[in-house]
Structure formats: C-alpha cells, structure tokens
Simulated scan of single mutants.
Amino acid sequence: MAALRFICFKQANFVRVNNESFRVEANRLMVFRDTTDVLISGEIIELTCSIQQLLNVCEKLCEQLPDNHSVQDKNRVRTIDFPESAQKTLAFSLSSDKCQAATFIIHYCLSNDWEYFSVLFSTMINEGGELIGFMKEYAFNPWPAERYASMLGISLRKFNMIFRERFGISPKRWLMETRLVHARYLLSNTMMSVADIASQCGFNNHAYFSESFRKRFSYSPSKWREHHLLNLNPI
C-alpha cells in the first residue's frame, strides 16, 4: 500500500479530487496522500512511495522540526513546478532504480517547499508512533517477527495486522528492508567485511544475507561495494 502518490503532468490536464474538478497546467507535479480520492486521465508519469521508502529517506527529518507541527488537512493536494529537466531525471531513475526515483522526488519536494513537505513527511512518519520507534530500536537484532510480537505481548497474527494497517507492509518485510538498506550504507561507507556487516545488520547466515541483498539490489554485497567504489573513483 502506497503512502504518497506523485503525479507529473507533461501537458495541461483536468483532475478530479474529492468530487471537485480543476485544471493542472503542464510541467507540474502533484503530491498527495494515497487516502485522497483523485481521478486523472491523460499522459502522466506516476510514482508511488511507501512509508518504508519515506522512512529510508527522511529518518532524521522529525528531529529538525518542533513537536507541535502538523498538517491541518490530510487530504490536501499540493502542486509544484516540475520542469522538463526534473521530468527527465525522474524518468531515467524510474527506468534504472525505483528506489533512487523515490529518493530524488522526495528531495526535490523538500528543496522546492521545505516548510510544507518537511511537515507532511515527518507527520506521516510520526503516525507510526511508539511502534515504529520500538521496531527501529531493535531492528538489527537477529530476531524473527515472532520475537517482536512476544515483546509487545500480542500474538503474531495481531502484530502483523496492526503493522500492515499502519505501514502497508508486514513487519517481516519491514525488517528485511531496513536491514538491507543499512547494509547497503555500510558497504558504501565503511571497509567492514561483508560477514561483519551481515552480522551487524541482523543476519545470522552470511549466505542468506548475500542472496537477500542480491535479490533486493541486483548485485551481491561485494559487487555492490566494487560498483560503488568505481563510481566514486572514475578512471
């Protein structure tokens, strides 16, 4: 389940939002929460973003904002300028790496209107409340989802249901994504061995970690590090 939708309009078009119609000019980006009822036709570029992706990009964002910030209208639709250069960058990112596309468009929104989007993104992250804080605190322990449910004093079935309702994914999938994204960071920014990174990110089995990483990022851990270093040091 997506948390946010980003719609890029190459041409002017009419949009229907919560039973109200209005015109959107060409070269505009529309941003809205997935709970908003929006009908669109015509040529567009669309990107959806999950809470997990938002967390990956904006994890530290909440620390930079006052405690009393909030978005007054959760169903509000925001449109901003989105020139051809940004559209080309988005299209290229979508064709090569959708995770990078999400990072690009989130950063673009923040650079375009920090006051609005920083509050929107952090509010959505904070809606997870204590549950997401608990999960983040213990994410890199080599525990299955059952252990987290037990610590919370609820059944695994109820834990899965609550977590999926709030974040759109299962806790098992959230743990895997969080661990793999952190492992990618360590591979790119430290010289720790692959085995040590696997252990630090909550994987007891080195082979399982390598296979999971390859499925997620299309490279083995060692190839990812090699590819990253080559990009940093072009010949």
Rank of each mutant, 00 (worst) to 15 (best):
Ala2Ser: 15
Phe6Thr: 03
Ile7Glu: 00
Gln11Gly: 14
Ala12Asp: 04
Phe14Gly: 09
Phe14Thr: 14
Arg16Val: 07
Val17Leu: 00
Asn19Ala: 03
Glu20Leu: 13
Ser21His: 11
Phe22Lys: 10
Arg23Glu: 10
Val24Met: 14
Glu25Pro: 05
Glu25Asp: 15
Asn27Gly: 00
Asn27Val: 01
Arg28Tyr: 08
Leu29Ser: 11
Leu29Tyr: 04
Val31Ile: 05
Thr35Glu: 15
Thr35Ser: 14
Thr36Met: 08
Val38Asn: 01
Leu39Met: 15
Ile40Glu: 00
Gly42Leu: 02
Gly42Cys: 01
Thr48Tyr: 05
Cys49Thr: 09
Cys49His: 06
Cys58Ile: 04
Glu59Thr: 02
Glu59Met: 11
Lys60Cys: 13
Leu61Ser: 01
Cys62Met: 14
Cys62Thr: 09
Glu63Asn: 15
Pro66Ile: 03
Asn68Phe: 11
Gln72Gly: 03
Gln72Phe: 14
Gln72Thr: 04
Gln72Ile: 09
Asp73Met: 03
Asp73Cys: 14
Asn75Leu: 00
Thr79Ala: 12
Ser85Trp: 09
Gln87Ala: 08
Thr89Trp: 07
Leu90Pro: 08
Ala91Pro: 02
Phe92Lys: 13
Ser95Pro: 09
Ser96Cys: 08
Gln100Val: 13
Thr103Tyr: 03
Thr103Ala: 11
Ile106Val: 07
His107Gly: 05
Tyr108Glu: 01
Cys109Arg: 08
Trp114Gln: 10
Phe117Met: 12
Thr123Trp: 02
Glu130Asp: 06
Leu131Phe: 11
Gly133Gln: 15
Gly133Trp: 12
Met135Gly: 01
Met135His: 04
Phe140Asn: 04
Phe140Lys: 10
Asn141Leu: 15
Asn141Pro: 08
Pro142Arg: 06
Trp143Ser: 14
Ala145Ser: 10
Glu146Phe: 04
Glu146Pro: 00
Glu146Asn: 02
Arg147Ile: 13
Leu152Asn: 02
Gly153Ala: 00
Gly153Thr: 05
Ile154Asn: 08
Ser155Tyr: 05
Lys158Arg: 15
Phe159Leu: 01
Met161Pro: 05
Ile162Ala: 12
Phe163Val: 03
Arg166Leu: 11
Gly168Met: 04
Gly168Gln: 08
Gly168Val: 08
Ser170Thr: 07
Pro171His: 00
Trp174Tyr: 14
Leu175His: 01
Met176Lys: 13
Met176Phe: 02
Glu177Pro: 12
Leu180Tyr: 01
Ala183Met: 05
Leu186Asp: 00
Thr190Trp: 07
Thr190Cys: 05
Met192Ala: 02
Met192Cys: 06
Ala195Glu: 15
Asn204Val: 06
Asn205His: 10
His206Leu: 12
Tyr208Asp: 09
Tyr208Gln: 13
Ser210Gln: 15
Glu211Ala: 11
Arg214His: 08
Lys215Val: 06
Arg216Cys: 04
Arg216Trp: 01
Ser220Met: 12
Ser220Phe: 01
Pro221Ala: 00
Ser222Leu: 14
Lys223Ala: 07
Leu229Gly: 03
Asn231Asp: 11
Leu232Gly: 06
